[in-house]
Simulated assay, not measured.
Amino acid sequence: MSQKVTGVIAREKNAPVELVTIVVPDPGPGEAVVDVDTCGVCHTDLHYVQGGIGDDYPYLLGHEATGTVTAVGEGVEHVAVGDTVILNWRAVCGECRACKKGEPKYCFDTHNAAQKMTLEDGTELEPALGIGAFAEKTLVHAGQCTKVEGAESTEKKAAVGLLGCGIMAGIGAAINTGEVKRGESVAVIGCGGVGVAAVAGAKLAGATTIIAVDIDGQKLAKAEQLGATVTVNSKEQDAVEAIREATDGFGADVVIDAVGRPETYEQAFYARDLAGRVVLVGVPTPEMKLELPLLDVFGRGGALKSSWYGDCLPERDFPMLVDQYRLGRLPLDEFVTETVSLDQLNEAFETMKAGTVLRSVVTL
């Protein structure tokens, strides 16, 4: 039978989020109910609140989550009741043209739960990124559950749960999309949560020169803590010149734009070595336009790539990165600035806007 639990919704655009009772149905075929343990407060959740993603209100917010599977529907075999899981928003279908070409990271028909969670009056909720984990329980497609080992405590779950979105995007931008190799040089423009995750990913991949660029000294200090060997305050220095100076005048092998603005993309384009790789992981807004001389695009060679969710495959990447965390090679704890409760989400969004945290994490 369905269960009533507490969750956080955005009822309308730019309104304060609300703590309400939601109804979670029993799992149907291919679905799972998960008791949520932790959930990171991501910028994407704020975009939902602000109307930047759509207008299918009310939204059940939250998606960077860990939890424990408490019920599974018919046909579910790869997770079982009692499993600790990280939730993901890329449950690949295996049938679309991308999957059939061997590129499931670009799956065009990812799975979500078929049933909807609702308010007590029957109003259907739209779960953020198909997850909706700012709640005591959530209903997801079983493919959105990735089983992991080695995350027994709440503190460890809070850290590894961030792989569910932003931190995976940054690490994956370096390792998967940028294909950083041992001994290469990497520059990261923008050192918020995704950017510093890209720094950590570059270090994990074996880069020897890692240049962090931002206009905020505190963010640069965090990037240095997570592996940057050079920091550049672009309020005080020309970013392109500074990156070239740090790479013997050549430019970096890989430049990652974790901001997603035309200005920062142009910096990334000209700060790379000849035939270097540019990776865009910062998300632009619809009105942004980019203008570059086509001869420069041709003449520099290399690759211009976009990174979606760090080009990750959760079933492959989450367990591997949790192992790296467990072995002390990936300091995921450093991304958790504070833990909060469900009823503190409005305050957590304000802290996020102020730019004073990498991640607030809700613990339940």
Rank of each mutant, 00 (worst) to 15 (best):
G206S: 12
L204S: 12
R277W: 00
I243Q: 07
V279N: 01
F250V: 13
D238K: 08
D273C: 02
V240K: 12
T247Y: 10
Y270P: 01
E291A: 13
I211G: 04
R244P: 02
D253W: 04
T285K: 13
E291I: 10
G190Q: 04
I210Y: 05
A198D: 03
Q267K: 10
E263P: 00
R244G: 07
A207W: 12
I211W: 01
V186N: 00
Q267A: 11
R277G: 02
T231S: 07
V259F: 01
G206H: 13
E224V: 06
V240S: 05
V196H: 07
R261E: 06
G195W: 02
Y265M: 14
Q237F: 00
D253F: 03
E224R: 15
E266T: 15
I256P: 00
G183D: 08
K203T: 15
V232Y: 02
V283L: 14
E241W: 03
Q237E: 14
V281K: 01
Q218I: 11
I210N: 07
A200W: 07
A271R: 04
G249W: 09
P284T: 08
A200I: 11
R272F: 03
E184W: 04
A207P: 12
V254P: 02
Y270L: 10
K219D: 01
A197C: 15
G190H: 03
G201K: 12
R261W: 01
L220A: 10
Q237A: 09
L226A: 07
G282Y: 01
F250T: 13
G260W: 03
F269D: 02
D253L: 06
G251S: 08
P262I: 08
A200G: 12
C191S: 06
A246N: 09
G260M: 12
V196N: 11
G206N: 13
Q218A: 13
A246E: 10
T229D: 05
G195H: 03
V196Y: 05
R277M: 03
F250Y: 14
M288N: 08
D214A: 04
A221S: 14
F250D: 10
N233G: 09
K289M: 09
V196A: 06
E184G: 05
I189K: 00
A242L: 10
E241R: 14
R261T: 15
L280T: 13
K235T: 14
A207K: 14
Q225V: 04
V199R: 07
A252Y: 03
Y265Q: 14
G251K: 01
G183S: 10
E291N: 13
G192D: 05
N233E: 08
I243H: 09
M288Y: 11
A252F: 05
K219W: 05
A187C: 11
V188C: 07
A275D: 11
T209L: 04
K289T: 15
G206F: 08
T247V: 14
A239P: 09
L226G: 09
S185H: 07
D214F: 05
V240R: 12
I256H: 00
